[in-house]
Design a protein around this nucleic acid. Structure first.
Length: 484
RNA sequence: GGCCCCUUCGUCUAAUGGUUAGGACACCAGGUUUUCAUCCUGGCAAUAGGAGUUCGAUUCUCCUAGGGGUCACCA
């Protein structure tokens, strides 16, 4: 019966999308499983029917899959432990509940919700902490399933070890009789996750710090069940961009799949999430998935919450883009090209991408960076009038420089080398600074605020299109008329 | 309020008794024959406060302050 391999799980409730916080918790658990050559389980905690959102389960699965997190067993991938959807495991919780009742460790709660609430308010009025067990009925009715079933706790001190937080301890005052099974027959999270983790032979529980306060009651329940608790790792929250509150959907935390829409690389996202609150002790910042698996260590997770910083994500994205091979990158950006790129052959687009690799971050920027390679943009005279050097030149000067450029380029074979040579000669011939001459040509060919190197750009655009753009520029007024 | 946890540059963090407190992001300046980037160089910038232990505290102890979590028939 003993299973030595590491088994971790991520157990979201299907109430909506996943944001970076949830995915990070899943990632940590996944890394531990992969590192131990073990299994990662995706379980669905769907015991609150009221909060359930249709389709959330598939959306969650899709989110994890995108980041690169896969699971050996899950709600959509049955394994040796039956269903991984709690709503389909009700019999199992009933069995365990009955066992606890037989052992005298669980009893029916005879009070109505209103009555319990009254106890709570009384305690509050006398400034005492509310404990249900102070009202524990002497002769509880037999549990018929219509009342909530409560755990009969055994209050005591607890000292336990948390892989992230270190040694923790609490007194008996935090141990109370909590509800195991709700009056609708569904188990509470507090009960179901323990039964499931035992059944599914989970060895490490990784979860957010909101569960740290209830860990003692879980320990109490494990004891009643005669079960050794799994290893626990409590991960601090990710903080929102402002304030010190935990990142939440309410404050605009995005669906993780929004980052896919914006064209972030899964590897960059994984790198970002893993290093938010964790580092390997060296100065390494950029990690591959394989490196994360081999280097991850729960003991090095930060005890305090860390702030979500999209700027860092963007930087990591750039780092991963630059590391990627063009083939890899080309596959990933396929849905992000501007519409005008559609007609162009793969080879051409691949070359555009190669020129853009150093300046591309998330792929949604691709159209803005590349459109002039696929279509002739409208002349934008602001580019000249706002240019430090060009704005000082009169119309005649601009036109004559352009004419010289056209003349030179007409004689050029447009190989990159010839272009570099030709442009250099032109600098000498016109006695101009690159800041003037190259800017003017670049702007009149692309009409784009930025572009790759001039020779590379002309080379890729080709002789016909480059000359056509320059000759067109010769026919329009370039210098803005000064009013004074 | 009770209980628990946390506190190093703006941000992510390194350093567990001896360092000019290190790195990265961001920002600023300079360089790489134009722009935007990349890359390189330099700069700015932190141990929450107070006691104590010690020859010596970011590091150990205590107190204070601040922040967070939790106290559901939600997970």
């Amino acid at each position: 019966m003993s299973n030595q391999s590491v088994r971790t799980r991520f157990a979201p409730s299907p109430t909506g999308y996943l944001h970076v916080g949830g995915v990070r918790t899943a990632l940590f658990a996944w890394l531990i499983a992969k590192q131990g050559d073990g299994q990662f389980i995706l379980r669905l905690e769907d015991t609150d029917k009221k909060r359930e959102v249709a389709g959330a389960d598939a959306h969650i699965a899709e989110s994890l899959r995108w980041v690169g997190i896969g699971w050996e067993e899950g709600f959509d991938k049955p394994g040796k432990h039956g269903s991984y959807r709690q709503s389909e495991r009700l019999d199992r919780y009933q069995e365990w509940a009955k066992k606890l009742v037989e052992q005298g460790r669980a009893y029916a709660d005879p009070y109505s919700a209103q009555e319990v609430q009254k106890f709570r308010e009384e305690a509050q009025a006398t400034k005492k902490p509310f404990l249900y067990r102070n009202h524990r009925p002497e002769n509880p009715p037999e549990w018929d399933g219509t009342q909530p079933l409560r755990f009969k706790s055994d209050p005591k001190n607890y000292n336990w070890h948390d892989e992230v937080m270190g040694d923790l301890s609490t007194g008996p005052e935090v141990i109370d009789d909590f509800i195991l099974v709700k009056s609708d027959g569904y188990p509470t999270y507090n009960f179901s996750h323990i039964v499931d983790d035992v059944d599914m032979e989970i060895t490490h529980i990784i979860r957010g710090q909101e569960f740290i306060a209830s860990t003692p009651i879980y320990l109490n329940l494990y004891e009643a069940l005669g079960v050794t608790p799994p290893i626990m790792g409590t991960v601090p929250h990710i903080l929102g961009p402002t304030g010190n509150k935990k990142l939440s959907k309410r404050d605009g935390a995005k669906d993780i799949l929004d980052y896919r829409e914006q064209g972030y690389l899964p590897a960059a996202m994984m790198n970002f999430l893993a290093t938010l609150g964790w580092n390997d002790g060296t100065e390494q910042e950029v990690f591959t998935t394989e490196e994360l698996i081999s280097k991850f260590d729960m003991k090095r997770i930060q005890k305090n919450g860390s702030r979500f910083d999209e700027t860092r994500l963007s930087w990591l994205q750039g780092a991963h883009v630059r590391k990627a091979s063009i083939d890899e990158l080309y596959k990933l950006v396929q849905s992000f090209w501007p519409e005008s790129a559609e007609e162009f052959p793969d080879d051409y687009k691949r070359r555009v991408l190669a020129l853009l690799q150093d300046r591309l971050k998330h792929f949604a920027e691709l159209p803005a960076l590349s459109s002039f390679f696929f279509e002739d943009l409208e002349p934008n005279l602001d580019l000249i009038s706002s240019h430090k050097q060009l704005k000082k030149l009169p119309e005649t000067e601009l036109k004559s420089l352009l004419s010289e450029a056209v003349a030179m380029l007409k004689d050029n074979d447009f190989s990159e080398n010839s272009l570099v040579a030709g442009l250099n000669e032109l600098l000498e011939k016109t006695n101009q600074k690159p800041a003037v001459l190259f800017s003017l040509i670049r702007i009149c060919v692309t009409w784009s605020p930025s572009s790759p190197g001039l020779a590379e750009t002309l080379n890729l655009l080709g002789k016909d299109r480059s000359l056509k753009q320059l000759e067109h520029a010769l026919t329009i007024p370039l210098a803005r008329a000064h009013s004074s």
